[in-house]
């Protein structure tokens, strides 16, 4: 279990986008809308998706359980889920 990082929304967004870029280097992430299905839009498979969650656990310190996968399938859903588990910015 990695320690939860103290990150603001901007920093978190940067981390998420850079991980997505690593998985789908040819995709133009500026056109990704908040409620697009990540797996369909970026054509990432279940291995890629698991890799994304492993990387986020390492960088953000939030481990997303399997039964919550339904909530984190979009950029907005993923951001909300993570932000709710980060310490509130002071």
């Amino acid at each position: 279990m990695n320690a939860v990082k103290n990150l603001g929304p901007q920093a978190l967004r940067q981390i998420v986008l850079s991980q997505l870029h690593g998985l789908a280097p040819e995709a133009d992430l500026s056109t990704l809308r908040p409620h697009d299905d990540l797996r369909e839009t970026l054509e990432i498979d279940s291995f890629d998706f698991l890799n994304l969650l492993i990387a986020l656990d390492q960088e953000v310190g939030v481990e997303i359980p399997e039964k919550e996968y339904g909530k984190v399938g979009t950029l907005a859903g993923l951001m909300d889920y993570l932000l709710a588990r980060l310490p509130k910015a002071t």
Binding site: S46, L53, I54, E63, E66
Partner: peptide, 17 residues
Amino acid sequence: LEAENLQRPIQNRLLPA
């Protein structure tokens, strides 16, 4: 699979494949 993955750290989770 779900029960198995619950006991595992995220980097050791199994996929249905």
